[in-house]
Design a binder for these strands. Structure first.
Lengths: 356, 356
DNA sequence: TCTACGATTTGGATCAATCCAAAAACAAAC
DNA sequence: GTTTGTTTTTGGATTGATCCAAATCGTAGA
């Protein structure tokens, strides 16, 4: 009756712990812990009895407490620089799918290509003791960041872009080869003046594309070379096309840094009254879903963002399991998805239903 | 010299703890803890001395340990059903921006519209003791899920879609009003046969749009009513246009569930040899970045995903601070972004530079 | 000089799990 | 009936912070 003696299970309802389960099942804390972690040590009978108690008491595993004593948190940090870009959306979906299978969850941050924001997030991840980090480094990231992360003892997998040179863990697409494929195709179609559109200098993914561009031209013995740097947005593609087309000689084909630039280029050509695919071939990179549904449908170098995400996540899990193993580079091969914008097909409006 | 006496600070390098800082600064653990949490209790001198020690020893705050004793983890769970959709990308960016300011980080999961996947993730979030959850419920989610979350004592903010009826916390856009705006505009242009394209029955966001559609027709005294259900993809928009146009009388304008459906509809019209905006007006919903850059540029009901994300995150933080406060609905007003696809402008190719 | 009172500081208990070495239970062999 | 050898099970220490009631320090007032 006394109001100043709080009953042990009063309203604040202390949550059910291992201890409670242990008491209920008539075993020790340790045994319950072993059951939860599916240890083969416990006898079958005991295991079942404990599991019944777990269910009966509505126990909820406390991963925070487990992480404090154990070493793993079963969490990962993921940093991208533009989550609103559907390319990264697909990549994150791939990461999510791979992690989900292993019981991992991930913190996501959007760096907006700001090294400062990126840094803040990484420090926060360290405080949260994530088991690993997937990093698409922001433009202008200090190359020593990788060493810093190593000194923090947190495995880091770079994705799509990388800073510095190997050895480090990396998952991405072979952009060099992708651009090569596109140019091979254009040359086979008879093109001799092929321009490349878009990209900044700051990171590896641009350099690889440009390298692929120059190598392919050299391979085919083409003299014409025109590389325009720019943002990697629709707007930039749109704005640069008039510049390019006013030159003489003008290119007959344009390979673009990504599909966004390519969409802009298509629009730019139409604006000039030219028919993309007939008057000038356009090839994008990424093969976003909307590439197939453009007008004309866009030929694109498919870079498989979902698969890249999955590979990156798997690589992270491998590295967490074996921190001292040799660094790995997982580089997927791109595929050229030929559609109308490069003039290979008749330049008709393609049904989206037939192009999956 | 003896090799079997491990030095206390040998290779495994036990991490620096509050205790170490306390020893170094000549104060107690508790005082260091107060400094870390910026308590006004500690004297200015002490505070500075402790902070010097923190820097000197390279201390890293252990949020896991803090969360075990304290009650907050400074983490949030975010569930969306299609992260590859740029709309959700923008929304997640908004969430990220708002949380970042408050030192919170978020777990992200992609339910792929599967209630089972969603459920698994929510359970994992519970084990991780997140402070709150932002949920875009998957199609077919059991309405009792909200009660379950409440019984788990985890604040849940529904975003964009909701299951069941208020009271609950919710952040979204006024879809009903948005569709109303679109139809007002079309009616002002002289349209009398306006169709609505896309959406399933399962969730609130579709019902609201349809309600807006019917109400607006009634308000203007229009007899013609045609509502086609479908997936909310480009493909569906493309496929339904021929069906709609073959009817007699055919509509002169189409309002679409989202921009993806609208893009499909534009393509479908072109496929039929009709000029979108002249032969049939098309209005989308969301106002994605690519809407301005289509051909023709798409008129769209802007639903401001970034702002919705920010509002949702802010609401979550408010609810965490005050779990027993009255539930809140934050409903943003949409805006009609008029471009060429509804025939209001001359149907010329619009420069993307002028339409931000 | 002593007492009060506010401003600081402190140590022990606590949060909920895992680790680990040792104990207990059981079975087979001598 | 021991002895030996596996399986299982266990309790105490540990992880790194916060909470909280009590101790300490200063200093103004009696």
């Amino acid at each position: 009756m006394s109001q100043d003696t709080p009953r042990p299970d009063s309203r604040a309802s202390r949550s059910v712990t291992l201890q409670d389960i242990a008491a209920h099942a008539g075993v020790s804390r340790s045994t319950v812990s072993l059951v939860l972690r599916e240890s083969p040590l416990v006898a079958e009978d005991t295991r079942r009895r404990v599991q019944r108690s777990i269910k009966a008491l509505g126990y909820v595993y406390n991963r925070g407490a487990a992480a404090l004593r154990g070493r793993r948190t079963a969490t990962l940090g993921v940093v991208v620089y533009d989550i609103a870009n559907p390319f990264f959306g697909a990549m994150v979906a791939g990461i999510d799918a791979a992690l989900n299978r292993e019981g991992y969850v991930s913190f996501l941050a959007n760096s907006e290509d700001s090294p400062a924001r990126q840094q803040r997030f990484l420090e926060r991840m360290r405080e949260h003791r994530v088991d690993g980090i997937l990093l698409c480094p922001a433009q202008g990231t200090d190359p020593r960041l990788i060493d810093t992360l190593a000194s923090w003892q947190i495995p880091c997998i770079q994705v799509l872009r990388h800073i510095g040179e190997p050895p480090f863990d990396y998952a991405g697409t072979d952009f060099r080869r992708g651009v090569g494929l596109a140019i091979d195709h254009l040359v086979a179609q008879g093109h001799e003046r092929i321009a490349f559109l878009g990209g900044h200098i700051e990171h590896s993914a641009t350099r690889e594309r440009w390298q692929g561009y120059r190598e392919a031209l050299a391979r085919h013995g083409l003299a014409y070379q025109r590389l325009l740097r720019s943002d990697v947005t629709r707007r930039a593609g749109f704005a640069l096309i008039p510049v390019l087309m006013a030159e003489s000689p003008a290119p007959t084909a344009v390979v673009c840094h990504n599909d966004l630039v390519a969409f802009g280029a298509l629009l730019g050509l139409k604006r000039l009254g030219r028919v993309p695919g007939r008057d000038c071939a356009v090839i994008g990179t990424d093969d976003l879903e909307e590439a197939a549904l453009g007008d004309p449908a866009l030929t694109s170098i498919a870079t498989h963002p979902h698969a890249v995400g999955e590979e990156a996540a798997r690589l992270a899990l491998r590295r967490i399991g074996n921190p001292d193993g040799a660094r790995e580079l997982v580089v997927l091969s791109p595929r050229l998805q030929v559609r109308d914008s490069c003039g290979a097909h008749a330049s008709t409006l393609e049904s989206p239903v037939t192009t999956t």
